[in-house]
Each structure stands twice: as C-alpha cells, then as structure tokens.
Design a protein around this nucleic acid. Sequence first.
DNA 1: ATTGCCAACTGGTCAGACCAGTTTTTAACC
DNA 2: GGTTAAAAACTGGTCTGACCAGTTGGCAAT
Lengths: 252, 252
Amino acid sequence: MGISQEISYRLERLILDGGLAPGQKIPSERQLANRLGVSRAIVREALHELQGRGVVETLHGKGSFVASIVPTTEDLDDRSPLMHLFAGHPRTLYDLLEVREQLEGQAALLAAQRATSIDRHRITKAFRLLGNTDPLTNAKPDHGFHQAIVEASHNPILVHVLNALKNMMLLTVQASVANLNPREEMRHSIMKQHKQIYQAIMAGKPDTARKAAMAHVRFVGDSMRNLESQGTKMIRMPLVTGTSEAGVSTYT
Amino acid sequence: MGISQEISYRLERLILDGGLAPGQKIPSERQLANRLGVSRAIVREALHELQGRGVVETLHGKGSFVASIVPTTEDLDDRSPLMHLFAGHPRTLYDLLEVREQLEGQAALLAAQRATSIDRHRITKAFRLLGNTDPLTNAKPDHGFHQAIVEASHNPILVHVLNALKNMMLLTVQASVANLNPREEMRHSIMKQHKQIYQAIMAGKPDTARKAAMAHVRFVGDSMRNLESQGTKMIRMPLVTGTSEAGVSTYT
DNA sequence: ATTGCCAACTGGTCAGACCAGTTTTTAACC
DNA sequence: GGTTAAAAACTGGTCTGACCAGTTGGCAAT
C-alpha cells in the first residue's frame, strides 16, 4: 500500500474515530505535508481519495472539512459504495427507470393474476386515498398505492428489489412529483394512468395491467427527460442529508 | 468545479456508460495527461478520487484498471435478514426466476440495441467458450456469457440488480446445471437457446433477443418444476457455506 | 467609524525530475 | 536457431518549487 493510501487511511480513521467532528476544519495541505513528512502532492491525493468517498469536502481558498456524514442512521442499504457511485449521475436516473419499467409492469401483471380479495381491498383503499390528496404535498398515498400493487404480486423478491430501487431513486434524485405535478396537465395524465392500472388489476386483466404500468413509468421518464432538456431545473438531493422521509415521491 | 473533478467525472461517466468495460485497462497517466491537456498531477488526483470510490484500481508498474463493478454486492447482502427469510423456501427460487425472466429479457433487448463492437467481441468470445466446456464441470463460461450480455446493456443498475439476484440464487439453491444438464436433451435445448440469444443480439434484433432470453429463463424454471414434481431431488445448498464459487451455475 | 487595499493565508495547477516496479526488447551465449 | 540474461522502455509513486486563484483579516487613508 502506497504512502498516499496510508495517509488517507489514517485521516479517515481519525475522522471516523471521532478525532475530527463533522464540519470541522482539516489542517491545511501544507501543514499536513510538513507534519506527516510527505510532499503536498501526496496529501492532495489522499484528500482526493477521501473526497471521492464522501468523507471530506474541499472549498477553494477556505480549506478542507469533514463532511457531515450520515450520523446515527440505521439505513444499512444506503451506505453501499454503489450508492456513491451511482448517485449524482443523471443517466443513472434513467437507468433506474429503465429497470423499474420492467419490474413495475411485472408487478402489475402478477397483481392482476394473483390478487386476493384482501389485496383488492387494500389496493382499492390506497387508490381512494390517492384521489383525495395532493401528491405534491404528500407523497405517502402514492407510495402506498404502488406498494399495495407490488405486494399483491405475492412475490417477495419482487417486493424487495423494487424497494431497493426506490431507495436508490431517493438517493439519486428528488424528482417525480416535485418536478412533474406542478404542471396541471401532467397531474391529470398521471391520475388517469393510475386509474387505468387500478381498473386493469381489478378486472383481472394481467396484460392490460402490465402495459398500463409500463406506460406509466415510461411516461414519467419521458416527462423528466423533456423537463431536463427544456432546462427546467430538477430538484436534486444533497446526497448525504438523511431526509429520506421527505414529502416527495419517487414514483409519481 | 475544478479540473480534476471534471476529469474524474468524465472518466466515471465513460465507465458507467460502458465506454470502458470492467477489467479494461485505462490509458497511462502520462497519456491521459497529454490527451486531456492537463498535468499528470491532475490526472493522478482524479484517479485517486475514483479509486476512493471503488471505480478503478491501480497496480504499481502495471497501470490503472476499471474495477469490476459490483464485486461484492451488498445491496442484497448475504447477511441481510431477508436472506434468512428467503433462503430455503422452495417458492423463493421460482419468485427469483420470475423476476429474472423480465430482467434477463430486458438485458438481452438492450444488448441488441446498444452493444458496441467491443461488447460484441466480448460476447462472441464468451459464447465460443461456452461451446467447448462441459457446463456441469465448469460453470464459469455460462456465467461469463450471461454477464457479457448484461454488461452490453450499458445499464449499471441492471447489472447490479441481476448480480444481486444471481447471488441470491447461489444462496437459495445449487440447481440449474447440476439438475438440468445431466439430461442429454436438456443440454441440447439449452445450447440451442444460448445460440438463439447470441444470434439475435449479434443481428441487432432487440425484440427477438428479449423473447429468446425470456424463453430461456422460463425454460429453466419449467424444467426445474418438472424435475421437482417428478420427485427428482434438487441439490440444495447448505445455506451458510460460503462456497459461492462452486462449480455449479445458477444460470443454465 | 468606514472604506479600500494589500499581505498572508487557503486550495488548484503546472513542470520536471527521480525512484520503483513491470514488460518488452535486445544481445549475448550455448 | 533457441535459451537466457542484461538493458531499455514502459508503468505508477514521490518529491520539489514555482505560480495562479480564491478568501480572509489587518492596516492605512479617508
């Protein structure tokens, strides 16, 4: 292991062990270089390594600081390195939607096939709740509706995977509702799509349900693409702020 | 945003978009510096950033390489409570296959659409390797073939999720090849299916590729179902034994 | 007391040199 | 010719010293 790796390791351990608190200023590069007996280039490489890992952040002219990392959060899934890798890349959002299109479609198909009377009741309840609330201010009904459908597929793996994808979307972008719903006609389209999915599942038409769900996801993705190309700023999340319970839906 | 960040971002996007395949060698620091018109120090800082993020790894005297993304999938971690819940339940296997059918299909479709000449070369190489080896004794060629296809989809999320599912299957059941291949006609069918997938992707027929891949997964599932209903004992794994590198494929 | 400038921080980038591993080429030997 | 060992030409790792570019704070002129 090279010197720079060793430096970065020592700094990281210092930070994680609490020797340096979040937000605290790290000694200047020149100071570190002198104190550690290495060149400044090495210090910079070590800092960049930690920077890529999200442990420190650097401001030109000010200095380097310990990033306010997720503190006591119990979210075990979000801390995966993959998250840091994916998050922040715009394309990731569309990759995510590309996969979700398939899985949401499959979930709707299976729900139409296998939903029990209890499932139907829960879906209906969630659907009713959907109409009353403004999705912009409250994302929970939206989550609930999709969740009820997925659970009605009676495929635990599918539930698990889609949930993981939902978490990834929360990390990647705070979009969908916040970006889409403000437009009146969009809200209308989305409600219409929800209704189509609902009716297809209730009528026990698997293929119709699948197509409706896929079209729904695709519509969201296309709408985002349009907004982005039009220069409308997407509300992106600060990445580290643990506000995963924000009032914004990653569905629609 | 500084130059080094920009460089690291560009490189990372190149990798994520598939411009650089996992394991592939990255141009030398001096070459990158010249080609990008920056100093070597900047290139090194950018590489360290990616290194800290786990995207690249560097060997002294050899060069820098794209880290095989998703090496240890933590998202669906082995230690996750869900694993203990899922593993051992026979139904889980079919739930898994149900999801995989969709995603493998999508992967094949995207591969047919987006495979670059490099991707095609890698897929062809993996396909050739497939014919020479007996899948029963060596599962790696089989893994390699499917892996090459998924990576040609140029959707990192898809790669990630399918890899996680593969790991789950390894945990759940040591099946497929061990159970299926002993039957001569099955081995023949599977080889035929592989060939269909391969040709469709090479011919750039997305929908054909998708259907072939889905039929392939479905065939495996159905075959397992048949075997199980006929009382043929499935070789199930001891659940906790970390022999994930066993010589048995979870594909076909 | 306010304003404005300048000096002393901070990180960002560059150039060139040298050390340390790895690979390839070359040349000597059998 | 074929084998082997030295040497040259790669690769990344580290150092030095310089200069540019933002930020901050103090000191002087108003």
